[in-house]
Write a protein that binds this DNA or RNA. Structure first.
Lengths: 364, 364
DNA sequence: ACAGTATGAACGGACACTTGA
DNA sequence: CTCAAGTGTCCGTTCATACTG
C-alpha cells in the first residue's frame, strides 16, 4: 500500500492536482452528494450548508470536471461546428453568430475546420465530432455534399447552415433566391437591357441558388440570358472575370455573387477605363463591412449572418432538448438590397444626367 | 419491472444507445481490455483478434466515448481558444491557422468568443475553459488585459497570440515594430517629410506597438511627429479620420494600422478630391486578400497569420507534452512590406514624372 | 519464462434511493 | 409526511496486476 501524502491522491500520475468534489466535501464537512447539489443549484440544501460548501469551493479553487459530468449525464454542453474554410466572409460571420448564441445558451463550440470539402475530410471531421463529444453538429457551407445522409451515424442532431442542397436535416439559409432576384431586378429597373453574372463556384449551393434565381429573373422579364462566368469567391477571380467582361462593350450591368468578386471586377473595370457606375453598374452580395468603402461604394445584398447563426443554434438546441432529430425544413433568413453608388442607369439612357456618384475625386 | 428489450440497457435514461467497449467485446468474444488495446493501437494483440474486434466495432458503429477517456487519462485532446471578436481580419486568419495546426496534431478546438474585452468576459471564458475541458488555452488578441496573471488558476498551459503586453506566458506575435518601421521608412524613403498615423484602439497591444514603432522611426529620422489619430480598426473609423486628414494640405503620407482603416481613409481622400497616391500616399497593415484589389492597390505590411497560428499550437503542445508551463518569451513572426500602388513620391518632388499608378481609369 | 488475456480498481460526478429529524 | 443530507452503484475508459495456456 504505497502510502501517499495526505492519503488522498492516488499514485496514478494525474497531472495537476485539481480538487474534486470529495475534497470540497471533506473541507466543508459534508458529503459529496451535497457538494453536487450546491454545484447544480438544487433547492434542497440549507442556506448555511450551501454557504459552507461555496466557501470551501472558493478556498480550493474547485472547478467541476466536465468530462466526468458528461460521462455521468451523457450531455456535453458543446456544439460541434464543421466549417469549410474561414476564408469566406459569410462563413466567418455565421460562425461568429453561432458562437455568440451558443455562449448565451451556455454551450461551447467545438470547431473543426476543413480546407477542402472532400467527403473524406468531412467524414473525418464528423467522426471526430460524433465521438460523443458534442450534443449536436452544425455544418456551415455544406458545399458539394452530395451524400450528407452518410455522415450522421447515431442520431446526433444536425443543422446545416448556408447553402442547402438536399434536405435531410434542418437547413438555415439566407434567402438566396430573393437576394439574387432583388439584385437583378434593381439593375433591370435602372434601365439595363440585361445583367451579367459572376457566379460562385459550381459546387457551392449558395452559388447555385443565386445563379438560378438570376437566370429565372431574367427569363421572367423576357431578357436575354448572357453566358455565366464562374469565379471562386476570391477578389482575384472577380478581377480575372471582370477583365474579360470589360472587353465587351455590351456589358453594362453585372451581378457578382459576393462582394469580394465584385471588388475584383470593379478593379478590372477601372483598369480597362470603364467607369462604375458610369459605364457599368455592379451589385455584390453579402454587404461585408468594407463594401460601403469600396470605390465606388458597393450596392449589394445584405445578409443577416448573426441572425442565421442564432437560428442555427436555436433549432439545434431544440432538437437536443426534445431528443427529436428534426426533419429537413429550410428556415429562410430574409435578405435586403442596399443601394449605394455602384449602380446607375445605363449611360445611353440619360445622356445629360448628372452621374449619381460625385465625380469630385478621380483617384488615379 | 419494465422489461426492456435485450435486457442490456439499464433503465437510466441515457439518450442514444451508443455501443460501448463492452458491447464490442461481447460481439467479438473478447474482453473489454482487448478492445481497449485495439482502440489504442497497442502491440500486444494477435492480428486475428484485432481484426475480429475491428469488424465488431464496424458492425456496431462503435465510437470511443472521449468523455470517459478524458476522465480516465486526464487529457482531452482539445485546445481552448479565446478570441476577441471575429470581426478583425487578423484574428480570423490566426484562428484559421490554429485550427489547421491543431487538427493536424489530432487536437480539436474549443472556441469561446468574446464581444467585449472586459475582465468579466475574459474571466468567464477562461473559467469555462479551465473546467478541465481543455489541455491548454490560446488567447487571441489579448487586448486590454492588464491582469492576465489572475486568469490562469491551475497550471493550464497558455499561449497568447497577437498583441503582447506583459509576458506572463509565451507570446506569439508578428513583428509589429518591424512592420511599422518598414511602412514608415518606405514612405520617408519616397521623399515625404513625415508620415501621419491612423492607429488602432489604444487598448490594443498590437496597435500600441505599431504606434510606438512609427513614432520611434520618425524621431530616429529626425522628422516631426504629427498628432496620432485613433481608430477602432473599422473602415468606418478610417473614413472618419481620413476625412479629417484630407482637409490638411500638409498631409502627404499616411500609415494606417490596418488595411480596413486604410480603405476607409482612401475613400475619404477620394471624396475630398485628393488623389492616392498623387496627393497622398498610404500604407496599410495585414495584407488582407482584398487589399490588392482596392483602388488603388494598397501598399501594405503582410502578416503571416497562418504561421503565427501554427506556432501558437506548437508551443502550446510542447507545454502540454512536457507538462512544463513555459515562461514569458515572445516568439516573433516576420513581416513583409508589399509595395503596390497606393504609395509614391510626393507630388512636388517629381514635377514631371509619370504617376506610378496607371491613370487610364478615372472611376467616378 | 513468455505471449496474450482477463480482472478490478480508480477517474469525478449525477442520480435513485434511503435515512434522520 | 416533508425536507435536508447521506449511501451506493454506474457512466465508459485506462491502467496495473493477476492470470492462463
Amino acid at each position: 500500500m504505497t502510502t501517499v501524502d495526505g492519503g488522498s491522491r492516488a499514485g496514478r500520475g494525474r497531472g495537476h492536482g485539481a480538487p474534486s468534489m470529495a475534497d470540497v466535501a471533506r473541507l466543508a464537512g459534508v458529503s459529496a452528494q451535497t457538494v453536487s447539489r450546491v454545484a447544480n443549484n438544487r433547492s434542497n440544501v440549507e442556506e448555511a450548508t450551501r454557504q459552507r460548501v461555496l466557501s470551501a469551493m472558493r478556498d480550493l479553487g474547485y472547478r467541476p470536471n466536465i468530462a466526468a459530468r458528461a460521462l455521468a449525464t451523457g450531455r456535453f454542453g458543446t456544439i460541434g461546428v464543421i466549417s469549410f474554410s474561414l476564408d469566406s466572409h459569410g462563413n466567418v460571420r455565421t460562425l461568429d453568430g453561432i458562437a455568440t448564441a451558443a455562449r448565451e445558451a451556455g454551450f461551447s463550440i467545438n470547431l473543426v475546420g476543413i480546407t477542402t470539402p472532400t467527403h473524406k475530410e468531412v467524414n473525418d471531421a464528423y467522426t471526430r465530432l460524433s465521438t460523443q463529444a458534442v450534443d449536436g453538429v452544425i455544418i456551415i457551407e455544406a458545399e458539394a455534399l452530395d451524400t450528407p445522409s452518410l455522415l450522421l451515424p447515431h442520431g446526433v442532431p444536425v443543422v446545416v447552415a448556408d447553402g442547402h442542397g438536399r434536405q435531410d436535416h434542418p437547413v438555415v439559409d439566407s434567402d438566396q433566391a430573393a437576394g439574387a432576384r432583388l439584385a437583378t431586378e434593381h439593375l433591370l429597373g435602372l434601365g439595363h437591357d440585361t445583367v451579367w453574372h459572376i457566379a460562385g463556384p459550381p459546387d457551392s449551393n449558395s452559388a447555385r441558388h443565386r445563379h438560378a434565381a438570376w437566370r429565372h429573373t431574367l427569363e421572367h422579364a423576357g431578357r436575354p440570358v448572357p453566358q455565366v462566368l464562374f469565379g471562386d469567391w476570391t477578389p482575384e477571380s472577380g478581377y480575372r472575370l471582370g477583365a474579360h467582361l470589360a472587353t465587351r462593350p455590351e456589358v453594362t450591368a453585372i451581378f457578382a455573387a459576393n462582394d469580394q468578386m465584385a471588388l475584383g471586377a470593379m478593379h478590372a473595370l477601372h483598369e480597362a477605363g470603364r467607369t462604375v457606375p458610369g459605364d457599368v453598374s455592379i451589385v455584390g452580395f453579402d454587404d461585408m463591412p468594407e463594401a460601403a468603402y469600396f470605390w465606388p461604394k458597393l450596392t449589394t445584398i445584405r445578409q443577416d449572418f448573426a441572425r442565421a447563426g442564432r437560428l442555427c443554434v436555436d433549432i439545434l438546441l431544440e432538437q437536443i432538448r426534445t431528443r427529436t432529430p428534426a426533419a429537413g425544413v429550410v428556415h429562410t433568413v430574409p435578405v435586403e438590397l442596399v443601394v449605394r453608388s455602384s449602380t446607375a442607369a445605363p449611360a445611353d439612357r440619360h445622356p445629360g444626367a448628372d452621374p449619381p456618384f460625385p465625380d469630385t475625386a478621380p483617384p488615379q
